[in-house]
Design a protein around this nucleic acid. Structure first.
Length: 426
RNA sequence: GGGGAGAUACUCAAGCGGCCAACGAGGACAGACUGUAAAUCUGUUGACUUAUGUCUUCACAGGUUCGAAUCCUGUUCUCCCCA
């Protein structure tokens, strides 16, 4: 049985950015171990990391052995790549916590069973924590010249604005990771986003000089959206993999809302659909864009992989209830169904006494609930025709009473067109 | 060490004694249009409030003035030229 070529897989998916000569030959020759590092800068990964996760997943599917590295050590240093300013160091407590969270997330995506392509998880803190400074500069630093390190873009870009020795050293630390994995896990390939090229190559260089070995580098495309805006950002910031930060419903909605121009690309990169399937979906979408089959397939696939089938089903139900139906339909739901449809983050409890008299919408939305952060903001939004209650646009004069409550306790509030909130009066 | 330029809201960037919460552009959010797209057009964008209001902002600290982002003094930082 012939495994599909990993490189070709990345090619048609549009994920390949660059690789060292010989990489493709190495992968064709034998099942190869390859790694990608994830620095624990937060206690959850976000969908930017998902590209790298998918790269590892594809790598494994093509018969190779993926190693997911959690950067317990590198996270302590801080990667200057792509950063315009020096960052604050995280405390060790926070790092150890983040590390555990990131590890748990990564574990869900790969197959860790035994066998030549069974995944492994390592933490570079394990080999760095007892590495003495003097040993490091003698054993590692001696092999790489300052001239070489200075030439990296990540360093050059920071010479004007400033770069600490700590961040400058990052490439050596990461380079040593690769060397360590090469020696201990027979790891021949490091992958990463295209901004990681410099760091990766420091590793292959170290392997060449220190171990006279040959190792390879491969980078993937950074995802760009058609309109030039950043991928993975929403009003609330990053789209996280942790459901406590981004609920499955919000996660599903993010993918469902992807622009047409970006959808084919994202489908190829974030799902495992094969070329035929993907093309069929893309053609189907081109023929009937308003059905948004592409976005639906994408959202479904990614949400399932990240949050599981149950969470997907619930997210879809909620979506149907909020977007697919009129308020008349909404009213037919039972109280339990309604409460179940909303994430806790979108649900606000309001004291019954508030509805004893007429309620001013401004104070209800801006003061009694956190839908708007202040009355002023709530007022501006209402004046700007951006607020609905029970699917009906409201004005400043529209007072709310207990008669507006469904089952005497529910009120559906909308901020803009897409943001729904549930007020529960009790 | 000598000389010059500069530091303004999320970013870029005007303003150079009162009409400045501060032009404009980008971004972000919202409205219309649509398909919970894109493009386009419109509105909002210091905070609180809703009144022709209050408060906090134009690197930092002082000062001049009825009044300063705008003038003076000192401090910090950045860039450029010469040595």
């Amino acid at each position: 049985m012939m495994n599909p070529s990993f490189i070709n897989e990345l090619r048609w998916r549009g994920m390949l950015h660059d690789m060292m000569p010989g990489t493709e030959e190495q992968l064709a020759k034998e099942p190869t171990a390859g790694y990608i590092g994830f620095d624990p800068t937060a206690d959850s990964l976000h969908i930017g990391h998902l590209v790298q996760i998918m790269t590892l997943v594809q790598f494994q599917r093509c018969g190779h052995k993926p190693i997911a590295l959690v950067g317990g050590a590198t996270g302590m240093v801080g990667d200057p790549s792509g950063k315009s300013a020096e960052r604050n160091l995280l405390s060790e407590d926070v790092l150890r916590h983040n590390e555990a969270c990131v590890k748990a997330q990564l574990e869900r995506f790969l197959d860790f069973s035994q066998g030549s392509s069974g995944a492994e998880m390592v933490n570079n803190y394990d080999w760095f924590k007892d590495f003495k400074f003097l040993d490091f500069i003698r054993d590692v630093g001696k092999h790489i010249t300052i001239n070489y390190m200075m030439a990296k873009d990540s360093v050059q870009n920071r010479l004007e604005s400033g770069l600490s020795f700590t961040e400058f050293t990052y490439q050596l630390v990461q380079g040593y990771d690769f060397y360590w994995l090469y020696q201990n896990k027979n790891c021949r390939l490091q992958m990463g986003g295209s901004d990681q090229w410099g760091n990766i190559v420091t590793g292959t260089e170290l392997i060449r000089r220190k171990a006279q070995g040959e190792a390879f580098a491969l980078t993937t495309q950074l995802i760009k959206k058609a309109d030039g805006s950043k991928f993975g950002k929403t009003e609330g910031g990053n789209v996280w993999l942790d459901r406590k930060r981004t609920s499955p419903y919000q996660f599903y909605q993010y993918w469902l809302n992807v622009a047409d121009a970006d959808a084919p690309n994202l489908l190829r990169q974030f799902t495992l659909k094969d070329q035929q399937e993907a093309n069929a979906l893309i053609e189907g979408h081109a023929a009937a864009p308003h059905l948004r089959q592409l976005q639906k397939a994408l959202a479904e696939d990614v949400t399932t992989r990240v949050h599981g089938p149950d969470a997907l089903r619930k997210a879809q139900e909620t979506t149907d209830i909020l977007f697919g139906s009129s308020f008349e339909d909404f009213k037919r739901l039972t109280g339990e169904e309604i409460e179940d449809a909303f994430d806790t983050s979108l649900t606000f409890k309001v004291d019954r006494a508030v509805f004893d008299h007429e309620v001013d919408p401004v104070s209800l939305l801006g003061e009694r609930t956190a839908i708007y952060s202040s009355k002023g903001e709530a007022r501006k939004a209402i004046q700007g025709n951006g607020v609905s209650v029970n699917k009906e646009k409201i004005s400043l004069e529209r007072k709310l009473t207990h008669r507006d409550l469904l089952y005497g306790k529910y009120l559906l509030a909308q901020k803009g067109k897409k943001n729904y909130y549930l007020l529960v009066v009790s």
